[in-house]
Design a protein around this nucleic acid. Sequence first.
DNA 1: CCACCTGTTATAACATAAATATAACAGGTG
DNA 2: CACCTGTTATATTTATGTTATAACAGGTGG
Lengths: 126, 126
Amino acid sequence: MLIEIDFSSDEAIYQQLCNQIILGIATSRLSDGEVLPSVRQMADEIGINMHTVNKAYTILRQEGFVKVDRRRGAFISVTERNRERALNIVEKDMRIILAQARCRGLTKQDMLMLVDRIYDEYDGEN
Amino acid sequence: MLIEIDFSSDEAIYQQLCNQIILGIATSRLSDGEVLPSVRQMADEIGINMHTVNKAYTILRQEGFVKVDRRRGAFISVTERNRERALNIVEKDMRIILAQARCRGLTKQDMLMLVDRIYDEYDGEN
DNA sequence: CCACCTGTTATAACATAAATATAACAGGTG
DNA sequence: CACCTGTTATATTTATGTTATAACAGGTGG
């Protein structure tokens, strides 16, 4: 999967990398079991340091999106199936986004439509 | 409005302050035109430096949530009514949240219900 | 005019985090 | 044994967040 980093962004590189891989999984450009490039290879491709990639992989592992096998390296493995815990994790960020949306004059219908559209986009790429 | 800062959080203090004020506006604990404590007063109340508060106020002003009058100080003023621009701002963050949600096994219905519930909470506090 | 309150700006110092660089180690593969 | 994994360690540079002290412009009320 093509990774594109915005070096002028205020978002940390390892964070951008995490987000893009998560987006990749959601849109099925990365499928379960698929092997990620090694930390050194990914670092070379993007043009960043090995440790920055390693940090992203470590976080993805802790968050339950990636597993590591000494033989194969890092590969996609989404294991979480605890619905309540997943909801709690998502809820805090969602509250902030919806607060911003409401302050900017967007209605509940606006947001429901946005969620509907994005989710269909993700599902549609299967 | 009561502001509570988590000093052990990995989120920057000025960022937490921005988020809480935006949440305050969305839940109508802060109403349009309401005056915010001065940068020095707010800093004293929370126990942080004046410049950290000033940074938060400056960002809120740039984002269009606050205006500044030399006489009164900073006050709530949500001026944005450009729906398209507002949607674009929200969409990027929403994509990342929904990607995480989908990876964690949450369905579109789960997210629609979450949005519905939070938005009702915000509207209900009027 | 004068003290007092606003936000704003400037400058410096310090702490923390991000990113890079170099190196080494344990374990699996061919 | 050479070569690839991830992982760990250490040091350095850079950027950001936070604090500190000070001053300035402008408005308010005595």
